[in-house]
Nucleic acid binder design. Structure first.
Lengths: 367, 367
DNA sequence: CTGTTAGCGCTTTCAA
DNA sequence: TTGAAAGCGCTAACAG
């Protein structure tokens, strides 16, 4: 039963339209649902009746019948984060154009919340879902497999997962980071700080230890770290654990870490920050120490924004194609929903390094 | 009929669980839906069967029966805009905690898209909706009334609408703007530019003309403009149309307008920008002209961010309580959904002026 | 407590 | 072409 909704005020159903028009339910349904054959004459009467009653199809009931909801699920860590907001904007625009709406859920980077979110999306019978998963290895992906088992296509966004049969859209984190750090090295820097590493707490001593730690955390962060190491290797620069941030991934954590680095006997002459908050944290630390860029330390950051370009001097940044990522992920998902059968593929978009004025040669050290 | 979904792969239904458990459909439904009485023994068997089959309730079917979807609709201009992203984050968090998911739709500030969005949400039988409407007067609100007529509570967010029976959550735009401009005036400024007025194209000559124009555009912008005029009035400073931006509301528009103002014979000594992009556009214009703040021109902007505080010098900004706005709007909506009957009210949250270092006394003019 | 049965609003088969 | 009737998966009266 329809609970205790006002029988009088409740929206008109297709049956009511049918009797108002003096035709059978099926004919009303056919014209209102745009399928099957209806004579122009009946059609007209049904339309008039619908108009008169203010009829609106109940999409839920329709979905129960057809098994199609025209709704997509989107699971991200934090919709308030400009990066994800940009992605969601891309998803939203392209899915809406294709006639799909999106249920967006923020998981606060918690795997448990993510499981709940995916569960709810399955229950609500979304036609597909896009997820930026907090999972790091295969054992954490049962919920995604669950969705797939229910016949719901999944595409992974921003983060890959090993050995998992889903289309995936990411950027070339490792290569972007490598290019950025390489730019710094080419400018003459040998000591470059890395802000936003695996949040293990204490600084890490060996490179092996660091890589092990990285593999237990977010894929993107790990990749950027690998890119950093790649650049160091290419240039034959030895790894120094004291130049890698391992504090909590917050702006404050970044500020503290950078402060510590900058107070080292042999401080970094350049810093690469891998996140928006890592950059603002870095700037805050420098400010407090009375240091300027690029004179005292050269800077490159991730996630370009209008602000980065109006800083004085403007910051050299890596720009992620957020809208494109969202659009491509949606595109792939819609393809699967339409029944495309190709093997799952990983699409890697290129992030662009926007050279501005926060990089220069290191000052000759006065010892 | 369930279209051509694989009968074999299709998710198990409550009937299948029932027969697997060897009980009646109703008992299975009761335990799986957590209602009515079921003996522990049957309950156990049902649960086991459900587990075994990997049963998940079909929320759509449930909604058709109960008339409740546990889904909220959110309609904003642009989910990619950090302001709306913050609001949506607030909505998402508090609604999820109450067991509701959210369908988010971006309308690109188009009334037509908004109408479509509201229509879809009605069709999908959301239990309520929160909308930051692009409507400016009563005639544009038929779609909202439509939702209400369908028994769907609506709460307005960020923008009020006159003579409309909806709960509304906004900030005190006018008063915040007044305070900001007053701060500038108290510092000694008599010529303060206003960036982001009604986009009428050409500069406006009279104050009356300006106000008329403002009333045809976005409510928030109009209010901020009124606050600006209030502050001028309080200080007895005459209105000067050449100090009000009327170009397109983009960063480029702001840059051009500010450039024009700054090249005036008698340029502004302070600028109040009412949007994030208005501020970055302003900074860009100043940079191009070789002007610095606060020496050459004092600055106050709307929508604080991490970046504003790491600028050198840090910018004085007005901070909108985005999360709170979203949370409060959701709270009001959930109240209505629960059946609260109080008269619709407008809740005005306070925006905070964060004084930093972009305001100083005007330089004595060397004529 | 449990099962039978009707019903939610829509789609879709099937015979007329 | 059209209408009757069955079906989607679930809830909820109702009898027992």
């Amino acid at each position: 039963m329809a609970a205790e909704r006002d029988r009088g005020t409740s929206p008109p159903t297709i049956s009511e339209v049918a009797s108002e028009a003096g035709v059978g339910r099926a004919s009303a349904a056919r014209t209102l649902g745009n399928y099957g054959y209806v004579s122009p004459e009946l059609r007209e009467r049904v339309l008039a009746a619908a108009e008169k009653l203010g009829y609106r199809a109940n999409a839920l009931a329709r979905s129960v019948s057809t098994g199609v909801s025209h709704t997509l699920g989107v699971v991200v860590a934090d919709i308030g984060n400009p990066f994800f907001a940009g992605i969601v904007r891309g998803i939203s625009d392209t899915s809406r154009a294709a006639g799909f709406d999106t249920i967006v859920i923020s998981t606060h980077e918690s795997l448990d919340e993510e499981r709940g979110a995916v569960g709810v999306l399955i229950d609500k019978r979304v036609d597909g879902m896009i997820v930026a998963s907090a999972a790091v290895d295969l054992e954490d992906t049962a919920h995604l497999k669950d969705a797939a088992d229910h016949g719901i296509p999944v595409v992974l966004l921003d983060r890959t997962l090993p050995h998992v049969p889903f289309d995936t859209v990411v950027i070339d984190n490792r290569e972007s980071a490598r290019k950025a750090v390489d730019l710094l090295i080419q400018a003459g820097h040998h000591r470059v700080g890395f802000v936003w590493g695996p949040p293990v707490g204490a600084p890490v001593a060996t490179r092996r230890e660091l890589q092990a730690a990285a593999s237990r955390y977010l894929w993107t962060d790990g990749e950027r770290l690998r890119g950093y190491l790649d650049a160091l290797d290419d240039a034959g620069i030895p790894f120094d654990g004291s130049l890698v941030m391992t504090a909590a991934k917050t702006e404050e954590g970044a500020t503290e870490s950078v402060t510590r680095m900058l107070e080292l006997e042999n401080p970094p002459t350049a810093i690469f920050s891998t996140e928006n908050d890592a950059m603002t944290g870095t700037l805050r630390a420098m400010r407090a120490l009375g240091l300027s860029y690029p004179e005292d330390v050269s800077l490159i950051g991730f996630d370009d924004s209008s602000w980065a370009s109006v800083m004085d001097p403007p910051l050299t940044m890596i720009e992620q194609p957020m809208l494109q990522m969202g659009a491509l992920a949606t595109d792939r998902l819609l393809g699967r929903i339409r029944g495309e059968r190709a093997d799952p593929a990983t699409h890697t978009l290129e992030a662009r390094l926007i050279a501005r004025s926060s990089v220069t040669s290191p000052r000759v050290r006065v010892t």
